[in-house]
Design a protein around this nucleic acid. Structure first.
Lengths: 211, 211
DNA sequence: TTTAGTGACCATAAGATTATGGTTACCACA
DNA sequence: TGTGGTAACCATAATCTTATGGTCACTAAA
């Protein structure tokens, strides 16, 4: 696939050069305060070339990051035939929660950058949406339904919302300084309750007291 | 609220002028092929002024449109104490389905413009997202939970996905030329199945044959 | 009626993004 | 080795959007 010709080498070099330059500048002065023009100038490359490698400025941050979303969709797609969708999805989610406390600082750094930038937040939602559509497609195909089947889309949205909601919840928590085992247990509770609600249905949601 | 001073009059005039000019140009040549600069020039107004009245180019299309989403959120918020959330939500959705066939041509026109423009599609998703967050907030507050409660967010997302999915489904249908009572009955089936799934839960989703 | 304030408007510039057309270095094949 | 093709790169311009600082007409209070 990637022939190791001179051309390919230079290409990877340029890509790395741009990525590194951007990373350094972002680390120094934040995302919004560094212009693509400046990155290009510093990397001795034209502005267009930057966009050639990274379609949007946001991709300079998200870069080659492999997304959890990918694993989530795959987990549902390849689940054992007797495993429920929510369980398969939850399995991946819970696996990540285990390493939560250890990754707290990484999360803080990412959350700080992202929360400070509308651009990055928008990009993140866009990515989620893409995967939601993909998941909806998988579910619809599985059931032999149209690609625009509403039920499939709703299920996909709900699942992805568990992931998205959990992510934001965890960010709030770590940014608020919470650490230690409480972090993981709180996240697990949130995820569990949300997934449980999905499994059992909204019929009795909320569990409301009589008035 | 709106004092009828000379200033206010002029303001409304300018706004109308811009809106009308844009509408005319869009009708003539489509959304993407008309630049804001051209709208401004034609309306004898500066480009900045256009953005002053319409924060984004997309708002020139969506304009003062009152969103279904508003009604959806309100319906949930003000539902009778024994009515389920999904039912309240569905009530508004089904009410719109009744007028579906009558509004088919309007829908075609809107769908054509929107489907042809990534910008407008993005704007539409943004709006949905805003209302999703609002709905999540309403649900969380109602239950006395944190604003970032995952369960509330998931429920809100799922409900909004019914609306969003139904909208796209209907657009597909009318763009494919389908009309008449089948339009409404198909939409009702889709909405009903999706809402039903939410009510009863994913535990047995999909209703899958043994392998 | 005068005057101070404010809000609508403007010109200008910067920034992210996309399209266009041109150059040049690498590559495959004779 | 030479030669045509293609892919990486560039300059330039257009587009949407936001920020800045200025001008002038309307407003409100003296």
């Amino acid at each position: 696939m990637t022939e190791p010709g001179l051309r390919e080498q230079k290409k990877q070099q340029t890509r790395q050069l741009i990525a590194n330059t951007a990373a350094r500048l972002f680390a120094e002065r934040g995302f919004e305060d560094v212009s693509v023009a400046e990155i290009a100038r510093t990397a001795h490359v034209s502005e267009v070339t930057v966009f050639n490698y990274f379609p949007t400025k946001g991709d300079l941050v998200f870069g080659r990051m492999e997304f959890v979303e990918e694993r989530l969709v795959t987990a549902v797609e390849r689940r054992a035939s007797q495993e429920s969708i929510a369980t398969a999805f939850g399995r991946v989610l819970l696996a990540d929660i285990d390493q939560l406390d250890a990754r707290a600082e990484v999360i803080v750094r990412a959350a700080t950058v992202i929360r400070a930038s509308p651009t990055l937040q928008a990009r993140e939602r866009e990515i989620t949406e893409q995967y939601t559509t993909r998941l909806a497609g998988v579910l619809a195909a599985e059931a032999g339904l149209d690609h625009d089947d509403v039920e499939a889309r709703v299920v996909a949205s709900a699942l992805m919302a568990v992931h998205r909601g959990l992510l934001e919840h965890v960010r709030d928590a770590v940014l608020a300084g919470r650490r230690g085992p409480l972090l993981a247990s709180d996240a697990a509770e949130q995820a569990g309750r949300a997934l449980g609600r999905l499994e059992s249905g909204l019929a009795r949601y909320p569990a409301r007291e009589a008035r």
